[in-house]
Simulated scan of single mutants.
Amino acid sequence: ENSQVLTTKEYVNGKWITTKGRFKVYSSWSESIKDHTKLMINGTDYNSQNYQAVTQASDYNEAAKALQEAHYAT
């Protein structure tokens, strides 16, 4: 699996910090979208239901809250 370490900002304990993170590298935009869709539908390796509340949300507010609760973004 191809990846690259990049500088990113994370929200930790109520404040923004700058850190390094490892991110997948895709050969195309389409490949990244397909992989993201699989993640939302199939969940993570440790929890296949991790994003179920996101995919079943009735509106974008509910979906955004579910993403945060699923620890998708920090």
Rank of each mutant, 00 (worst) to 15 (best):
E1G: 10
N2L: 14
N2T: 13
S3R: 14
S3F: 10
S3Q: 07
Q4S: 11
T7V: 11
T8C: 14
T8A: 11
K9F: 04
E10Q: 15
E10P: 01
E10W: 09
Y11P: 07
V12H: 03
V12S: 01
V12F: 08
V12Q: 11
N13R: 08
N13L: 06
N13T: 03
N13V: 00
K15L: 11
W16F: 14
I17L: 07
I17M: 03
T19A: 09
K20R: 09
G21A: 15
R22W: 05
R22Y: 06
F23I: 06
F23E: 02
F23K: 14
K24T: 06
K24M: 00
V25W: 05
Y26E: 10
Y26T: 07
Y26M: 10
Y26A: 07
Y26S: 02
S27H: 07
S27C: 05
S27A: 13
S28R: 11
W29I: 15
W29Q: 14
W29K: 14
E31H: 06
S32Q: 15
S32C: 12
S32I: 02
I33T: 05
I33Y: 01
I33A: 12
I33M: 13
I33V: 15
I33P: 00
K34G: 08
D35E: 15
H36S: 15
T37N: 14
T37L: 11
K38N: 15
M40N: 04
M40D: 02
M40T: 04
I41R: 10
I41D: 09
N42I: 00
G43E: 05
T44G: 12
D45S: 14
D45R: 11
D45L: 11
D45F: 06
D45T: 12
Y46L: 12
Y46I: 07
N47R: 07
N47V: 04
S48M: 10
S48N: 13
Q49V: 00
Q49G: 03
N50S: 12
Y51G: 05
Y51M: 02
A53H: 04
A53V: 00
A53S: 09
A53F: 01
A53K: 11
A53N: 14
V54R: 01
T55A: 10
T55H: 04
Q56A: 14
A57L: 08
A57K: 03
S58D: 13
S58T: 12
D59H: 09
N61D: 10
E62K: 11
E62C: 01
E62W: 02
A64S: 12
K65C: 01
K65E: 10
L67N: 00
Q68H: 13
E69V: 02
E69N: 15
A70N: 00
A70C: 01
A70F: 00
H71L: 09
H71W: 05
H71R: 15
Y72F: 01
A73I: 06
A73R: 06
T74D: 13
